[in-house]
Amino acid sequence: MKRQKHLSRFLLALAAIVVLVFLLAPIIAVIGGSFNGEGYFSFPPDTWSVRWYQAAASNEEHLSSLAHSLKVASVATLISVVLCIPASLALVKGSRKLTSFMKKIFMAPIFLPAIVWGVGMLLFFGKTNVRGSFGLLVAAHVVLVTPYLIRVVGSSLDEFNFTLEDAAISLGATPAQTFLRVTLPLISPGVVVGAVFGFMISFSELIITLFIAGSNFTTFPVRVYSEMRTEGLNPMVLAYSTIIVVVVLVISIIGEKCARWSRFFS
């Protein structure tokens, strides 16, 4: 009886490990391949070297695309935070019918195909003079990032004790003071988690950016994608990706440990 239990436990763990390895196989390949000394992809590496990291540190084009990605992600996340906090408050306190409808709209970017949205935007803005502009790209990314922020901030507000607002008012605070001194400080951990989430989603986004970014403003994912289609795999790109994965890993560990943020996925 005991042996059966141990056996089934062992098999389960084995199956889980196999699936986990499959899940992480591409990332492992990317990390491993970045240390290949030769100029082609090889995993396991034929020779071990960090030359691609050195090359990555000085490659102008890739570095500028990285900078573009960081720019878009930070501006879009910031704007999204500013818009989503009042919206989330309204979703909690506003009239039932309107809020349930608006909530569906705000969450829609996760569920509707990016490719369709991308073509739509391309066509609609194609004839206007904002096409290819930084502003348009940022606006699109704000919409992209919003569902995550609404989810996380919404969850923070669900845990917030609204009696505290009554207490502040009874002590003389105006609604604005109540928001700034009581509500906001207490939901800001949630806001930070949502912002970090959104930043990373925006940074690694490909499809929308592919459609509406201007040709002189490539982001990192777009650049890597275009290169892959034309030139195949370039170990230097693997070096960049490895760095990104490591950064994401560190942030994820912090995010999971402090805020259990995996609960916000789907």
Binding site: N161, T163, L164, D166, A167, I169, S170, G172, V182
Partner: peptide
């Protein structure tokens, strides 16, 4: 409400 200067002690105390 915020100008009435009426003190309220809430059931769950509502301390910040």
């Amino acid at each position: 409400a915020h100008l009435r200067n009426i003190g309220v002690v809430f059931q769950d105390y509502a301390l910040f």
